[in-house]
Amino acid sequence: MSVSELQRERAAYRRSRARRSTAVALVSTLVFAVAAYLAVTRAPGWPRVRDSFFDPATAWRALPAVLDGLWLNLRVLFVCGTVILVLALGVAALRTLRGAVWFPLRLLATAYVDLFRGVPLIITLYLVGFGLPALRLTGVPNDYVVLGGVALVLTYTAYVAEVFRAGIESVHPSQVAAARSLGLGHRKTMRLVVLPQAVRRVTPALLNDFVALQKDCGLISVLGAVDAVRAAQIEQAASYNFTPYVVAGLLFVLLAVPSARLADAAARRAAHRQGAR
């Protein structure tokens, strides 16, 4: 393909601009990193902080126990995540029901969402974790992992239900009209036309909540479940060194990064789709 002299000259100019901005970004990152490093390491308390938070030997010793705990976090994450998705979709669907018969269910769903979105997660954890077993009802589990999971599900279902509801309400009424005009009832309209579109639209927001759930799984440690955070605490208590917490924190970050990138990609795809229409 032949390119005009004008276009060649413009392309060269654009390339030189691109090279320049890359160079500027590189230099400014370097300057910032050096400044941050100097500011931290020249702080008067740095040697003590380094020894009690960034001690490689302690980190290495704590790693197996913390990893063990993280495995528990992961299992809690996936079980809770699945349960939350299903329940939240149900709650969101309840809130969109019309008709007098459904009034109590609608009211219940609304009250539930208002309550558990308002209560701090840690209080729900304490109430469910310590209050529920204290009732001594038969059939109530007394395993702190299960109880912690229940508290997470209660709180997160309320949030995710609202995300789903926003998605449901974002589907244009003309889609419902089109489905109803074909003779589809309310339920089939919901299941076949509204929900598939709603879920696609809220996927980025759902992934964002997933990342939040990922780290909030660490809160089940307050009930005594030996997860990554609790394991780090045990190691810390044995060595009087806080490095295990840093190890646990880093592991949580490592866990969150892929999910965060996935969320970004989903958001980009959604934006692209919207732009394409």
Partner: peptide, 18 residues
């Protein structure tokens, strides 16, 4: 729904399911 099964409607904005 029974009545709508015997009618078809086409809208100005198509309203196809995307």
């Amino acid at each position: 729904d029974a009545a709508r099964r015997r009618m078809g409607i086409v809208f100005q904005a198509f309203n196809l399911f995307p």
